[in-house]
């Protein structure tokens, strides 16, 4: 496995598991820890519901951190920005060509960059037109 592929998978893994939105993830960690502490404090002071809260305070902190991360990243999951139709179509064609063996791996890599450059071109053009 070359370094390009290796770093690609490392980046994907880090993004998917940890830091797609680091602010939300770190706040989720904090949220989970605070929740754990709150449950522990409540179990100490609230006597009528002590049995319930004592059980709650026994929940593993890792589950509460996971809950915090899930809650704070849920908004990002629902509101994922969509890319333009043309770019989506180009990517679909590229994938199809690659799977059918019509486009080589190196060519596909260059074409992905071409798609990005073209989209930025469009954006800069539209900005310049709006300015005029």
């Amino acid at each position: 496995m070359d370094l390009n592929t290796l770093t690609k998978y490392i980046k994907m893994a880090l993004d998917l598991l940890f830091v797609k939105d680091p602010v939300a993830t770190s706040m989720g960690v904090l949220f989970g820890c605070i929740l754990h502490l709150l449950l522990a404090i409540v179990s100490l002071f609230v006597s009528p519901a002590a049995a319930v809260t004592e059980e709650l305070s026994k929940i593993n902190i890792a589950y509460l951190i996971a809950l915090g991360i899930f809650i704070l990243n849920w908004k990002n999951f629902l509101h994922r920005p969509k890319i333009s139709y043309e770019a989506e179509y180009a990517i679909a064609l590229l994938k199809q060509g690659q799977s059918e063996g019509l486009i080589s791996k190196t060519d596909a890599r260059l074409q992905y960059k071409r798609i990005v450059t073209d989209e930025i071109d469009k954006l800069v053009d539209s900005m310049n037109n709006a300015k005029e």
């Binding site: 770093t7 690609k8 980046k11 994907m12 920005p81 890319i83 770019a87 260059l110 960059k113 990005v116």
Partner: peptide, 22 residues
Amino acid sequence: RIDKGFYGDNEYEAREILQFIT
């Protein structure tokens, strides 16, 4: 990846850049 010119040469990263721009 950016330094070596690898960044943006696959579907995942291309989508990431496009979403970021959008």
